[in-house]
Design a protein around this nucleic acid. Structure first.
Lengths: 266, 266
DNA sequence: TCAAAAGTGTTGGTCCTACACCCATGC
DNA sequence: GCATGGGTGTAGGACCAACACTTTTGA
């Protein structure tokens, strides 16, 4: 995005090409080892972790800026992205006084630098297939990696709050949209899908009710294969059937209208 | 907010006190004559109607800016406000080329003016009691008045889309929160409440099921009075019981968890 | 006395919840 | 063969949807 020689220009006069006072931050969810993961970056100078974020080019749609940012951090295109809240408190960055950093990447920066100025940030959450992600730091960060959702460190800015709200938004959406599939590989077993739901909702679900519900929605396609797992019975593989899903949507069935799906309590 | 002599200063150098590139717009809903109303302002120079909106002071929380803006347009304090979406397309203002207006309020303005610059706008919707509102134009507008939701004119910028999305957000919230009461006077009858729900959801509901549902939630207090209406049986008056509502919330009952309330279809 | 609106209860269907047994597999 | 996990069906309860008659009131 900013080749080395462009970095200092970006810090010094990036506001010519990017909108100042507005940024976006992404809560990227992945699912691995039966845990929800969140992608974080570690800042070079500030030394703390934050969500991957970015700025909006002056000629670029905001949603495209979010896609671009995430493509840079993950290597994935066409990411499932949902805007969930915009954060506009005056004190949201007091956690990490960028303006007090005398020297950012060899470039002097002060409280008057456009990057240190007050910024309203638009929060997106993203659902990605864990194994497809290739975490990549940007110029401001020395590291980029997955963290377990329940073991996040204290984050810079108001990013801990962002994660919390993103999780709430994700849970709410889960009841109305078949978003779980974007977190899984193309084929998956019913127990895997259930584990994902249990992790997101953070409570156990009943196997039988869960399966009835999922199959009842009518757009899970059972394949003829089974997955061989250790010393146990092999579960069937399923695939999300996008065609049947569109069809179900049009018939007003499935999600969209009703479908509370608050509980397959177990 | 901007006394006459301050107006030109605001246009010329308002960016010193307000954040450029960010604005907020409010979809203010009222309920009157069994119709949902939306508050609009008419621009002096552009000549078209838009949502009431505003800018964020550099020292002000964004949510406070929304409250302040609406207080200026309605005279009401402590308005029920919900942020619902942030609009960031590059073409969202091409509808109304502010920068092409050679002269705005006696002050020359060009494409380089901060007000004409690209702006991301945070959308809020507000629910107010119709009769308490005193519509008040600001310096940019020559009129401020209610419009019937179903008879809105083509609006400036992307504001028609904002209204549509606000309405969707309102409908979704209606299923989970007792927001109807903020649109009604303190006391109201069951048929009035039902009319409000029918208007928001845009479909008829069954009286008996509706009443059962509303009373079942447990925080509607029936008063000993009835309202005398024309040549018909007098309906009871009700009041929203905030205390019982809080209690119901804590017990996990009522809204919050389940309560789909998608249909009392009639 | 009539028209228009409000108050009220019951029944059937659907969906959610709870729960138990058999099957497959590798050690 | 046994431990572990996967596959499946049924019965009870809660909630939603459908529906009809009586009461009140002013014209």
């Amino acid at each position: 995005m900013h080749p080395e020689n462009d970095l200092q220009a970006f810090i010094r006069e990036g506001y010519l090409h990017f909108l100042p006072h507005v940024s976006l931050d992404c809560v990227v969810f992945g699912f691995h080892d039966n845990q929800l993961k969140v992608l974080l970056v570690k800042w070079k100078k500030l030394g703390g972790w934050s969500l991957p974020g970015g700025r909006i080019k002056r000629t670029e749609h905001m949603d495209d800026a979010a896609q671009r940012t995430l493509e840079e951090r993950t290597g994935i295109r066409e990411i499932f992205l949902q805007q969930f809240h915009t954060f506009g408190r005056t004190d949201r960055t007091q956690n990490a006084p960028l303006g007090d950093v005398a020297d950012l990447f060899g470039e002097p920066i002060g409280p008057d630098n456009w990057l240190a100025d007050r910024t309203v940030s638009v929060g997106y959450y993203a659902l990605v297939e864990f194994s497809k992600v290739n975490p990549t730091p940007d110029f401001f960060s020395e590291a980029c990696r997955w963290w377990d959702l329940h073991e996040l460190p204290p984050l810079l800015f108001d990013h801990n709050q962002m994660v919390t709200q993103a999780l709430h938004a994700l849970r709410a959406q889960l009841h109305y949209q078949p978003i779980g599939y974007t977190l899984l590989p193309e084929t998956f077993t019913m127990p895997e899908l259930q584990a994902l739901y249990e992790t997101i909702l953070d409570r156990p679900l009943d196997r039988r009710n869960f399966q009835k519900r999922m199959l009842g929605l009518g757009y899970l396609q059972r394949l003829d294969e089974r997955r061989t797992i250790g010393a146990h019975k092999s579960p069937y593989l399923y695939r999300f059937d996008r065609f049947q899903y569109e069809k179900a949507l049009q018939e007003g069935l499935g999600f969209g209208q009703y479908v509370p799906m608050t509980s397959f309590a177990g």
